[in-house]
Nucleic acid binder design. Structure first.
Lengths: 100, 100
DNA sequence: TAAAAGTACTTTGATATCCAAAGTTAAATA
DNA sequence: TATTTAACTTTGGATATCAAAGTACTTTTA
């Protein structure tokens, strides 16, 4: 039995943050409102989770106007991508332990 | 983009509880002290996480004496196994979303 | 036989996290 | 000018986390 969860990331334990990173690894960028719809969270909750990912250096933020409306785009950083992949690897280790 | 995390289990968001379930799916039973060593947690922390899994109906507890010392064995329930597998499935969906 | 040690807790208390709801700011539109 | 939309921030209450200390029972050791 190995049980090495050294790659496990406390930041990504949270469902919303995990989903955000998942989306931002699959997509170059994604905006606030689209995230909100996809994740079914209040805007306050989404904003605070985005802020914590930003604080952690996992994502970057770009503000602009699109169609004359404010638009906030989020992108993963390299660090964020690495952390997400590491976290998934840790989870995969758990799974492999079961079936492998 | 699907993002169906309906199988995601809040109880198993916690690292320690996830590891406990992982061990109890791979092994018929496991005792308190062995879990403690494997997971590197204080006994208070372990006990409270075990209790919450028991309360949730994910594990059962058997107390006995082994070598004249108290020994507490834990086993997964069917419900616990199902929940663990469902949770992993939800996580696998996330992963597949990336690479599949 | 009294003290120490081991097992498996429970309790305490301090901190951290979570999250909905309400409030805010600024621009666009009616 | 009032309303709406986007994207927050703030507030406050609930819940979670976790180390440390305390407890109960038993066995071992001095």
């Amino acid at each position: 039995m190995s049980l090495d969860l050294s790659l496990y990331d406390k930041v990504l334990e949270n469902r919303v943050r995990l989903q955000i990173m998942s989306i931002l690894v699959a997509n170059e960028h994604y905006d606030f409102n689209s995230l909100k719809e996809l994740l079914d969270v209040t805007d306050g909750n989404l904003a605070s989770n985005l802020k914590s990912l930003e604080k952690e250096g996992y994502i970057t933020v770009e503000k602009s106007f699109v169609d004359r409306k404010p638009n906030t785009k989020y992108r993963r950083t390299e660090k964020g991508k690495k952390s997400f992949e590491n976290h998934l690897a840790a989870l995969e280790n758990l799974i492999k332990q079961q079936y492998g």
